[in-house]
Nucleic acid binder design. Structure first.
Lengths: 193, 193
DNA sequence: GCAGACGCATACAGATCTGTCTCTTTGACG
DNA sequence: CGTCAAAGAGACAGATCTGTATGCGTCTGC
């Protein structure tokens, strides 16, 4: 096999898929080993522990989902700053309609690890903050009066929509988008008053 | 001990506390047995399996939280139908500020059990629907044009706020309340237009 | 070619988990 | 008091989990 050099990548890819789809605790090391076609000792050579692997997967999720996918979708779907905020909801609508919609691993992990001192819990919190900061930057560019507050509100809408989509509501993003319009109008128009 | 007759209640109480606080998978039967001071065989005499106990806890949560607590708070905090919708957010604000805020076991369970055919997953979905139906009834009484849509939107706000509170945002309910005002105004005032 | 690192395979340790079995004790009721 | 069902206590089975140890093949750099 020529993939001698990217054993670490194979492990990480498999763990990424499994953790994102099924959560952390319900996926065992043995399953990751089996599905990645790798020796268990190779996994523990590259990652000190399961927790270490989880943290690596959360970072990879930031790279692939938050940075590469979400930002690209926002840029693709909208041009003006105000449209960009709404485009997040359009992107989520597409996401929810994917056949293999896997829900949000950050929220899943946050709820699964309830100890706020746990590094895994903290990593999930941090990843949600990364997303909120991106929303806040867009809100600022769109002229929101209180970008931080608006970002909190919009992210709340997004997270609620994810839970709704996870229980099978495919219209969740569109419904949330309608609310987001009200929020954005209110946050930007109060300047004119 | 005089609590010979309510062994089942002691088990259920302990499981309720532990499952609601820490989730399902991270709480083992042994811990429930130890903390309820009951013999393991007594637990399995009253509940066929752990899954059975989980379903009983979800039902108990509906009774205690959804029916007894939430409805009572709504009635206590508001009198008019429109105020009642907003009172949900006020109740959540108090809930989030409890020292022992335990997050939402329905959402936690929904995300923890990703198989939509699993009875536990389905029970969590059903419990969230029960809550949405209650919101819908209040929305109808408040004169919303599309009570179902409004209920979906308000519940999305509530669920997003819960995630936010779980990551430590104590202002989540107040922020969501401000958005809810926009939603309710929009849903009820479009009749006048 | 050869040393050493890397990967595969697999057995294993030790913990934990669900669920069962057995034995003893206790309490309710006739 | 005697009976019987329920509860307590704890060992146990079997599965699964994380993590380690070992032995063997293979590729790479020198």
């Amino acid at each position: 096999m020529g993939d001698r050099r990217d054993v670490r990548a194979r492990i990480l890819d498999t763990a990424y898929e499994l953790f994102c789809r099924h959560g952390i605790r319900s996926v065992g090391i043995d399953r990751i080993v089996a599905e990645s076609g790798v020796a268990k000792m190779s996994l523990y050579r590259h990652f000190a522990s399961k927790a270490d692997l989880v943290l690596a997967v959360l970072d990879l999720r930031e790279e692939r989902w938050t940075r590469d996918w979400l930002e690209a979708e926002i840029a693709r779907l909208a041009t003006t700053p105000a449209d960009r905020l709404l485009a997040i909801f359009d992107a989520f609508d597409e996401w929810f309609h994917h056949d293999d919609f896997e829900s949000c691993v950050f929220m899943r992990t946050l709820l699964e690890f309830d100890d706020s001192a746990d590094p895994i819990h903290r990593a999930a919190v941090r990843q949600l903050e990364v997303i909120r900061k991106k929303i806040e930057a867009h809100a600022e560019q769109a002229g929101a009066q209180e970008p931080e507050n608006t970002a909190y509100q919009l992210q709340g809408l997004l997270m609620g929509a994810i839970v709704s989509a996870t229980r099978g509501d495919l219209a969740a993003a569109r419904r949330a988008r309608a609310v987001a319009e009200l929020v954005i109008d209110n946050a930007t128009s109060s300047a004119a008053a």
